[in-house]
Design a protein around this nucleic acid. Sequence first.
DNA 1: CCCTTTAAGCTTTTT
DNA 2: GCTTAAAGGG
Length: 634
Amino acid sequence: MIRYTNCDKWFPSDGIELEDAAYDSVKTDTNCIVIAGPGAGKTELLAQKACYLLETNKCPNPQKILAISFKKDAARNLAERVEKRCGKELSKRFISRTYYSFAKHLVDHFRMSIPENYRPPAEYNIASHDDIESLIKHYDLPHDIENEYGIHEVSTTEFIRFYLTKNMLPIYKEYNNINEWLIGKVWHSLINGESWLTPSLTFPMISRLAEYLLRSNPSIRKALRMTYKYVFLDEFQDTTEVQYDLVKTAFLGSNSILTAVGDDKQRIMNWAGAMEDIFNTYKNDFAAVQKELIMNHRSAPRLVAIQKVISHAINGRVTDIKTNKKWNREDGICENWIFDNEKEEAEIVCGSIKTWLEEEDISPRDICIIAKQNVDTYSKLIVEGLKLNNIKARNEANLQDLLSDEVAQAILNIIILSNDKQAPVQWVEVVELFKMLKGYDDDSKEEKIIDLEMELNKFLVELKSSFETTANKEQLKEIINRIIKYLGESIISGIFPQYKNLSNLYKLIDDLTSNLWKEYSEVMDWIQAVNELKGVNSIPIMTIHKSKGLEYDTVIFVGLEDGAFWSFRQQQQEDMCAFFVALSRAKRRAIFTFSNLRTDRFNRTRIQSRAQIRTFYDLLSESQVVDEVAFTEM
DNA sequence: CCCTTTAAGCTTTTT
DNA sequence: GCTTAAAGGG
């Protein structure tokens, strides 16, 4: 029996302290938009709000909270935080999904209620770019698109990204031009398939179908609104029109209470279709109240001082951001490092990193190397230089998909467990996975679980002896295949949709085998090899976009040059935001490098200019806490 | 065939 | 903004 807390007596769990605006946002009964800058504790705020609603029974059983994020790991993080804060039982009614999984669930579950001419078959693929391109080629049409600026040619990529799902369903009853006809044709072919193409839908198409479904079925819409009394919307500044239309149809005019969280200063997804004026649109549509968090728990005071200046340049607002008490007033380092060429840049950067790792209490994972884009070209010399000093650094994007895959994680956990029976975290994760694979839940009999654990132990012992005789890549692959067989190939493909097509699973096995073997052949120890593969001893290198949401003690931004910000003239605001995102990843130290000469991704060395980026420099000097260090005769 | 013009990629996620 | 590759014109 759960005992509920009186609303007035509710306090944040686990000793968390919320600032006033956060406390307001938790307790408010109205739709709201919470502006949460970097380090404001966005995830914590949403987790605490979920706890408040569940623990005080403001969200009574069987009603639920729906949280919608963009990325799987954001959705998972939030769910984990809620479970940690208010326990397993209550957190069952906290449903954390991505936009696309929310949409796909609706479409798959209520497929038969979708109007017939837009009803997809029970089995359909996720359409690839090539699938749609083949259709466009099949209809053999030019695809000029008319917009407010007149007729303009549209690339295939643009057609798929922006035009195929530009409007709500149903698509124009009468075709005004050849492109509307083409959009209709492509939709029809993708839903019904062609002789050479199984029915295939893109995620934005699925979202449009979900919206159409809800709009044309008031009873389903009503049921959804009754189920989800509270709705959280994460990273709201990145919302696309397709996603917003779905949210509007689902919840506008209902009693469901929406809490959107976002930061207009971190809008760096405009180019990918994020809505221009989403905060105001939402405020008007949902009569949402704006709250603004003013704490930055992450960055040191001197870094926050710079962030304030950039922030003001972005939106013209002056906010008195407060820093965490753990810092001294003078904490925080920000420097611009100017070099003649990349070679000098690499030397100084590598030397500094080496010194920091030796003399300061930080590990490789506390440092991050960031570039605007083309990460490999900007970091090539630095990676080579670090390698000479036995320091590892790597582009996170290359292994990200592999390492975030649930099946890959399970395999790596099992490999660790078979070599170290004491690994508690891995044990819990693997047992949970097996319970899921076998369809057990918390009500399952204790004996069943004990049987499962004993059987697993037996398997791990068998594996261990195999590992002792593994001497080449092929033998490692055999072991991984045995693990897959033990998990059950068909069970995997049934539970993890990405492996419905088994060739994806075989590709994963190949990928994992070669990457793990590469690590093992260097360290000759399985546990260490898994850890190296996970990158626990590597300095991460990534784009600004990938770094969003992450934090590091030290951030080295490589290449503060016009060449790196090639779109500055077209999207000054967005590039300023990108600069803000990169800067605000740093807890204590932010370094920006500039090189007069830079080799681009086509391997040509060019003179770099600062004419446009001067804007950044001027802002940095205005903040009066940035030191400019020249390693050159400029 | 050669020279000029034009398109597309850079930055991303999702079952 | 700057590159490469493909397409277009004479």
